[in-house]
Structure formats: structure tokens, C-alpha cells
């Protein structure tokens, strides 16, 4: 795509942070409106916003540094969003009190499969140790994943990207799986999204139902905590075996 040199040079000036924030928000609002009319997996706002912003950044020859300068506050909002999980969890406290053993089983199974499958698959495909370690924490939400990757010796930014791709893939995959798996309980439907696709999955689970949404949120947070606790142990094992 040919780029007007005038436009390109202005974009590298002082106001480009504002431009990237406005572009991201604008594309997001537009794709959300499209998704509300045509709810298909390929109209997912996360997918479309990512594709369109990436294409725009590529055609304007922008770097990640320039892009993130204007949009890091959006990533920072993940913090308050994590705090916000307290409300749905509190409102579903009766269900949690009743079913906590099931939730613990689900989280233990999910965390084991997540770490085990990433490691085995990455080894089978012959990926380098750096990449392999960055792939380990992809089932947990970004703030946890970056801490985890640092602990076991992966690359935090790459880990964050793997986390996002997992969310993207998982939110769509989960929707298909719901049609195929004979799941009667909202617990299983919620745990599927929360464990497999963290934040993106939780947002999708909230669309499936209120109970599914809060189970997914709870499972996501507990899985994140579990991985932060497991990371030092895993890091120790890695250093003794590698």
C-alpha cells in the first residue's frame, strides 16, 4: 500500500501516540458494532481490531515502541479489570461455596494439561528453549504470564503475545466446542473458557451466561495464582534438567 510521505512523517512526530490510541479505539468501536449485527467467530472484535491495527501499523512502518507509547494505558486497564472480578465472584459466592471441590479438580487438571501439552508439543516440533519457555504460561492472563515467563526464563513480550493468541484462538474454539461436548453443567462450560482462554474466554463466557461468566473469571484468577505458585518449582526443575 503506497503511503503519503507527508502523512508518514507527521505520524512519526509528536502526536502519533494520540493517533494510535484513537485508531485502536475507533477500530474497536466499529468492529464491535459489526459483531453485534453479525455474531460470527471471524467478526470477533479482538481478531478484527488486531488485524486492522496491525495492517495499519505495517503500512505506516510504525514500530512497537511507537504504537505502545500511545496505547500502554489500555494494557494498564487490565489491572483494574482484574480487581473488577471481585464483584461477580462475590455475587456468585453461594455457587462457589457449593461447588469448590469440582472447581479445584478442574483447575488442577487444566493447569497440568496446559503446562504439559505446551512443553511436549514444543519439544516435538523442535522449538528453541527460549520459545518453549515463553509458550508455557499462555493459558493464564497477561499480568500473571509475564511474571511466570520471567521466573522460568522465557521472553515476557513473546509470552504476552502467545497469551493473546491463545485468547483469540480459545474464545472461538470454545464456542465450537460447546456445540460438540455434552456439557450439562454451567460449571464445565465456564471452566472450559476460563482455563483455556483466560480473559478473552471469560468475556465470551459472560455472553453465554452470567453463571458461566463468573465461573470462568474465578477459574482464570485461580489458575493464574496456581501458575505463579508453580513457577518457582518449575524454574528449579528446568535448571536442574537443562
Amino acid at each position: 500500500m503506497p503511503v503519503d510521505p507527508m502523512l508518514a512523517s507527521t505520524l512519526h512526530g509528536d502526536w502519533h501516540p494520540l493517533f494510535w490510541a484513537a485508531a485502536t479505539l475507533g477500530v474497536y468501536l466499529a468492529t464491535r458494532a459489526i459483531h453485534q449485527r453479525h455474531a460470527r467467530w471471524w467478526t470477533s472484535p479482538l481478531l478484527l481490531t488486531w488485524l486492522l491495527c496491525f495492517a495499519l501499523a505495517l503500512s505506516l512502518h510504525a514500530t512497537y515502541g511507537e504504537y505502545i507509547k500511545g496505547t500502554h494505558w489500555l494494557v494498564a486497564l487490565l489491572g483494574p479489570a482484574t480487581v473488577a472480578f471481585a464483584t461477580p465472584i462475590y455475587e456468585q459466592r453461594a455457587m462457589i461455596r457449593k461447588h469448590w471441590p469440582i472447581l479445584v479438580v478442574g483447575i488442577a487438571a487444566g493447569t497440568t494439561i496446559a503446562i504439559g501439552s505446551s512443553w511436549i508439543l514444543a519439544s516435538l516440533l523442535g522449538l528453541s528453549p527460549d520459545l518453549r519457555l515463553s509458550l508455557l504460561p499462555r493459558s493464564v492472563s497477561t499480568p500473571f504470564a509475564m511474571a511466570f515467563a520471567e521466573d522460568v526464563g522465557g521472553i515476557p513480550e513473546l509470552a504476552a503475545t502467545c497469551v493473546v493468541i491463545t485468547g483469540l484462538v480459545g474464545a472461538s474454539l470454545g464456542e465450537l466446542l460447546l456445540k460438540w461436548l455434552p456439557l450439562r453443567s454451567s460449571l464445565a462450560r465456564g471452566a472450559l473458557f476460563g482455563m483455556g482462554a483466560h480473559g478473552a474466554g471469560t468475556a465470551k463466557a459472560r455472553q453465554v451466561g452470567a453463571e458461566e461468566g463468573s465461573v470462568a473469571g474465578l477459574v482464570m484468577v485461580l489458575a493464574g495464582l496456581a501458575s505463579v505458585l508453580v513457577a518457582p518449582v518449575l524454574a528449579f526443575c528446568m535448571h536442574t534438567t537443562l
Binding site: T24, L25, Y28, P45, L46, T49, W50, C53, F54, A57, L58, A62, T63, Y64, G65, Y67, I68, T71, H72, L74, V75, L77, L78, P80, A81, A84, F85, A86, T87, P88, Y90, E91, T142, E157, L158, A160, T161, V163, V164, I165, G167, G199, A200, T202, A203, R206, G213, G217
Partner: peptide
């Protein structure tokens, strides 16, 4: 919980957007 429930729902509804900027790290790789 009513002091936070509407704000929480708002933030959680838009959580997908907060992930997008991190994916742009691919520009440098």
C-alpha cells in the same frame, strides 16, 4: 457490591480491547 457492580461489568465487557496493544509486539519480531 452495588457500589462496584456496574463499573465492574463495564470494565469486564471491554477486557478484550485491553489485550490488543500487547499483540503489537509482533511488529518487532
Amino acid at each position: 457490591s452495588v457500589w462496584f457492580s456496574r463499573g465492574s461489568a463495564g470494565l469486564l465487557d471491554h477486557m478484550l480491547l485491553f489485550f490488543v496493544p500487547a499483540t503489537m509486539a509482533l511488529l518487532d519480531h
